[in-house]
Amino acid sequence: MTQLGAIFLPQNPPERLREVVRAADDSGLDELWLWEDCFFESGIATATAALAWSQRVRIGVGLLPVPLRNVAITAMEIATIDRLFPGRLLAGIGHGVQPWMRQVGADVESPVTLLREYATALRALLHGEEVTTEGRYVRLDKVALDWPPSPPPLLLAGATGPRSVRLCGEVADGVILTASTTVDGVREAGSLIDDGRRRAGRDAAPPVTVYMTARSGAAAAAAEGVRAMVDAGADKVVLEPTADEDPVAYVRFVAEEVAPLTA
C-alpha cells in the first residue's frame, strides 16, 4: 500500500490540533504533516504536542525555514523530540519563503549556500559528530550534542528551483516537493535528485515525498492522482486540503476513503 499522509494547515487555530491528531491516530492515517509558515504556528511546538497526543501516527514538519533557526538549536530540538518519540518525527528543512525571510530581517544573499552549509552541519550533529565549520553563514566551534538520537533520524529537505532540488539530492535523506509539482515535475525532480546523489557519491537516491491538493468527497480522483505521482517516482504522497476543509473530516477522508483505493 502506498504511504499516505495529510496536512494540518497552519491556517487552522492551534487549539484544533489535538482533535485532528486523535482522528489521524484512530483512523490509521500513516502520517500527519505540519507547516511552519510565517506567521501562523511553530513547527516544533505543534509537532511535539501532536506526538504526545498520539500513539502511532508519524508527524512530519515541512518545512523548518533555516534562515530563522540557528543550526545548533534545530539539532537540539530534533534530537530531543526523536529521543522522546523514537522514529515518529519527520523533520524537513528549507529556504523559507523569501518575502517572509526579508520581512523578519533573516534573508540571505545565497539561500542555496545557506541550505548546503546548514544541512551538512545539521546532519552531522544528528549523527553524533563534533562539528567545527567556518562557512559563509554557518559557524560552529567544536559543537556536539550531549544527547544525540540513536539511530539518527532522517533529515528531509524541500525546495522548488532546480539548483535547490539537486542540492537536496546531495545533502538530505529525503526530498519534499510542494503541491505545485505536476506529475512531469516529479519526474524532472527525480532526475535532479539523482544527479545530486551522484555528485555526492551516495549509493541510493533519497526518497521523494510530494504534496498533492485533493478535496474531500473525491476519493477516486484523489487515488488516481496518488497513483500517477507514484508512477512518476514519488515514494510517498501527502494530501493537502483546501482552506475550507474541516481538518478532522479531512484526515478521516484520506485514511478511510483514499488509502484503500491506493492499495
Rank of each mutant, 00 (worst) to 15 (best):
A47T: 01
R88F: 04
V97P: 05
S54V: 00
V61D: 03
R56G: 06
L89V: 07
I93K: 06
A106S: 11
L68M: 14
A72K: 01
R69D: 03
G94Y: 06
W100T: 06
M76Y: 12
Q98I: 07
A45P: 02
A79C: 09
L64K: 05
G94T: 06
E77F: 05
G92R: 00
T48F: 03
R56C: 01
L84F: 12
R88N: 07
G60A: 09
V112S: 10
L90M: 15
I73P: 01
L115W: 06
G87A: 12
I93R: 04
A52K: 00
L63H: 00
A45C: 11
R69I: 13
P99Y: 13
N70P: 12
A106H: 12
G62T: 10
L115H: 08
A50N: 02
T74Q: 07
V112W: 06
A72I: 05
D107H: 12
A75T: 07
P99E: 14
L114D: 09
A52L: 07
L84K: 06
L90T: 09
G92V: 03
G92Q: 00
D82T: 05
L115F: 12
A91K: 05
T80C: 07
A47N: 02
V57S: 05
G92C: 06
Q103Y: 13
I73W: 10
A75S: 10
P99D: 13
M76G: 12
P65T: 09
V61G: 07
D82G: 01
Q55E: 15
L64E: 07
D107R: 03
N70K: 07
L89H: 05
D82M: 01
S110H: 11
S54Q: 02
R102H: 09
A91V: 13
R56K: 13
P67S: 12
A75D: 04
Q55D: 12
A45R: 00
H95D: 07
I44A: 12
V66A: 15
A91I: 10
P67N: 08
S54H: 02
P65S: 09
F85I: 04
L114A: 12
V71C: 12
V57H: 03
N70D: 15
R88D: 04
R88E: 01
T48S: 12
H95Y: 11
P111M: 10
L63M: 10
I59H: 07
L63A: 10
R56M: 00
S110K: 11
I59A: 11
P67R: 02
I78V: 15
F85V: 11
R56P: 03
I44R: 00
R69P: 04
L51S: 03
L89P: 08
L114Y: 12
I44P: 00
L68G: 05
R83L: 14
V108M: 09
L115N: 08
Q55R: 10
V57E: 01
P65D: 11
Q98M: 14
V57W: 00
R102V: 13
I73G: 03
A49N: 02
Q55V: 03
L114C: 13
T74A: 15
